[in-house]
Amino acid sequence: MTQAIPLEAVLVLAAALFCIGLFGALSRRNMVGVLMGVELMLNAVNINMVAIGRYLEPYPYVAGQTFTIFIITVAAAEAAVGLAMIIAIYRTWLTSNVDSVDSLKG
């Protein structure tokens, strides 16, 4: 594996995934779409962690994979709270578009 694919190729793939997720998080109107973009960005970070751990860490150390698991935990918590907020907002405003919920606008 490490002899066939350079580390840079995996990192460029993760960067592409991160930028696609950033575009989705910034430009989607639906709140669930924004959340999906954020999930893509978190996945890109996880790919980076695993790849750098695989290529550069010596044998008994597992910091890359450990922090991947922590990021997955945080992503699960974030998805649960975010979707609960989407449902609460939908109940009040009867919409799930980010540009319709602007009562905090000055």
Binding site: M36, E39, V50, A51, R54, Q65, I72, L83, I87
Partner: peptide
């Protein structure tokens, strides 16, 4: 990348929980 455990966790948590949660929402 030879991280089998992370792959299984990815399927379990992301596909099994987060994606289903998103579909529910």
């Amino acid at each position: 990348l030879e991280a089998e455990f992370i792959a299984v966790v990815q399927i379990l948590v992301y596909v099994g929980a987060i994606a289903i949660l998103i579909l529910f929402a």
